[in-house]
Every structure is written in structure tokens, then in C-alpha cells.
Design a protein around this nucleic acid. Sequence first.
DNA 1: ATGGTTCGGGAGTGATCGCTCCCGAATCGG
DNA 2: CCGATTCGGGAGCGATCACTCCCGAACCAT
Lengths: 201, 201
Amino acid sequence: MARPRQFDEHDAVASATELFWRRGYHATSVRDLGDELKLTPSSLYRTFTDKHTLFLRALDHYRATESTQAYRRLDASDRPVREVLREWMLWLVTCPADGESGRGCFVVNTATELGTTDTQVQERTEAAFAVTRQALRAVLAEGRERGELSTDLDIGGAVELLFTTVLGLRVRERAGHGLERLTTTIDFAIRALGAAPAQPA
Amino acid sequence: MARPRQFDEHDAVASATELFWRRGYHATSVRDLGDELKLTPSSLYRTFTDKHTLFLRALDHYRATESTQAYRRLDASDRPVREVLREWMLWLVTCPADGESGRGCFVVNTATELGTTDTQVQERTEAAFAVTRQALRAVLAEGRERGELSTDLDIGGAVELLFTTVLGLRVRERAGHGLERLTTTIDFAIRALGAAPAQPA
DNA sequence: ATGGTTCGGGAGTGATCGCTCCCGAATCGG
DNA sequence: CCGATTCGGGAGCGATCACTCCCGAACCAT
């Protein structure tokens, strides 16, 4: 039809995600976004409708990248579940691959900032939470099948505790808490899954 | 000296706390505050210097009321520590005495919204966190002394886990999660403290 | 009473908010 | 090559942001 875009829409969403992640929704202005994405206001609005829509796109982008990566790291098909869980949680509080620390989790930050006021946002945060819980449930189930966890283990309760602990860890990482204390937390949480049952040879 | 104030400064801070708590820092405008506190801008600024200072006052007010009440409810001098812990955590996620739900914890909301960017805010959130951890430590120590908890219990680890769990619970309450699931979480967290040692008559 | 001081209230500051409009340039299909 | 369409870019919209100034009224010490 006509003139094509001179910027990569996907890259722009990624940059917007970065900004919203660090500063939150209200503290990020459209001008900030424009500067970061190297987009004039008109291009930004033509492409993303408005700030709120762009924010939803950013949330979706985050879930499609960070959350999905977390989900993949929780795969326990070839390692002991305790080890997988421990390293997964450690990665969650260490992940600043790009040196950026104190960002916490975009979903957690968003859930606390926007609470239950924005239904479209809430749908997305709840979906992300549900995926995490589901993945935890799968790992624990696998651990029980393999005999790494006691058959007495209340998987429902363990999922809730691990999930809640992860939210807390994300808050603490955002608040700048040191890795040492967070590691202590993680180790104790793993221990809460109970001792490994005796192995039948 | 001169004409006295026609409003109660303490009440004004309490109202401001309510507003900041529900909406967060950036989403609360000075006009909103003025309307809620029934204060004209000039009175507000004469009394509280500026928005940021008023926010710090609100944080301090919250710690002096809500946090202190939580601290008091964690007193285990005349009841079993598990029971005290359980009811304390339940209260934390139920406390909307005034019907207001989904507010979460003002300190947690603030820590995630402002992260590590504001040192004055961070001092206060960290102080609040430290008080909670200290209170948890005291309860667990008492439980061990009384023989309600195993002498093998790693109190340091248990404190970290309980504290982190509480942060997670507060996030979930803010996100609108149902009491049922949160109760499951709490019960499993209590169970993570281990079985009660056999009572020596 | 009176002078000194702070009060409540309202108008108004410049800056920034989210967002729109219009332009000439660029790129397409025909 | 040309009409149609969308592009990037910049100026600028009304509204709201945090905040200030000024005024007459109210209060206290003397």
C-alpha cells in the first residue's frame, strides 16, 4: 500500500517494557517512551493507539519473554526437582543479565501498582500467576512420581507456599535485599518440602 | 503567637495515608489530597512542605499504626506460637476492618513502586521490614524455648521464609486473591516449621 | 484595643501530562 | 510515472501536574 515503517515494532515494545518495568506505569511518561524508543509522539500513537495499550503490549511482551524463559527453566525432566526448584528461584532473584538490578518482576510490580483497578491489566497478571502455579504443580507432581518427594506431601499447599515465596522474593529483590538472605530463604523453602523418602535401591 | 490551625494535622496525615495506600505515590495528586483532607493547597503546603514530605509522613503514620498493631498481634506470651503466627498472618490478609480490600500493605506497595530510587523512602521501608523480621525471630525463639518448636529448627531460615511469605501474601491480597488460597498458603508455611517435639510430661 | 503572626481560600505560576493535527517525504500498487 | 496511502517529525492542543503568592480574616500576647 504505502510507506513502510522505519523502526522495528517489536524492538520498540521491548524498550517500552524495559522502561515500564523499571519505573512503573504512572511514573513513565509518553515523552520518556518516545525518547527511549526513538519515536515521535505521532508515530507512537499511530502504532500503539495510546499509553495504556502500549503498556498492555509491554506486559504481553514480558510474559512472552521473561515469563516464558522462567517457565522453561522450571523443566525438571532430567534433574532432581529440588535442584531445579532451587536454581530456578535463585535465577529469579539474580537474573539481571544486563546488570540491571532492583527491577523485581514486572508482573508483581504491576499487580501492586495497579492492584485490582484495571481489569485488562489484572487479566494479564492473573494469567501470568496461573502459569507459574501450574508449572510449580507439574514439577512437584513429577518429583512425587519419581520418588524424590514424599507421597504425603500436600502438593496444593506446597504450590501455594512456593508461589507466594516467589512473589515475596521478587519484592525483596526490587527492594534491594542482598542475595545472601534471599538464598537462605530459598533453601528453607526447599527444605519445607520435607525430607526425601528412602530410596528403594 | 497567632491564629491556630482549624484542622487536625494528625487526621490529615491519616487521610493522606489512606489515599497513598490505595493509589500509590505517583497516582495520587496534590489536588486529590487537598480534596480528601479538606485542605486548600496553600494550607497543605504550609503544613507539610510538599508532596514528598507528606508521603514520608504518611509512611511514618502507617508504621506507627498498622505496623505497630501487627507487631502487637505477634505477641506470643500467652498462646502457642503456631496459633499466634497463623492468626497473625490471617489477620494480615483479612484486616480490611473498614471493608476496604485489595489495599495490600502500604510498605510493600511503596517498596515496589519506588524501589531503590528514593533513599528516604527506602530507609523507612527497610526499617519496617526489619521490625517484622525481629518480631518473627522473637516469636520463634520463644517457641523453641517453650519446647513448642524443635531445637533443630533453623530460626534464621524460618524467619526469612515467614517474612518472605508475608510479603508474598500482601502482594496477593492486593491482587485480589481469595482468602481460601491464602489460608492454604499460611497453613503450609506454619507446617514448614516442623512437627512439635514430644512433650516431656 | 492593638500589633504581630498565622490562618483559610482562591487565583495563578511554569512545566509537564496524554494526545492530536498537519505537513512534506517516502514508498507502495497500477 | 502517478495517485493513494502511510510514514517521520514538529508544533501545539486542553488539562493537569506540583507548587506559590497574596489577601482579608482570625487569633494570641500584651
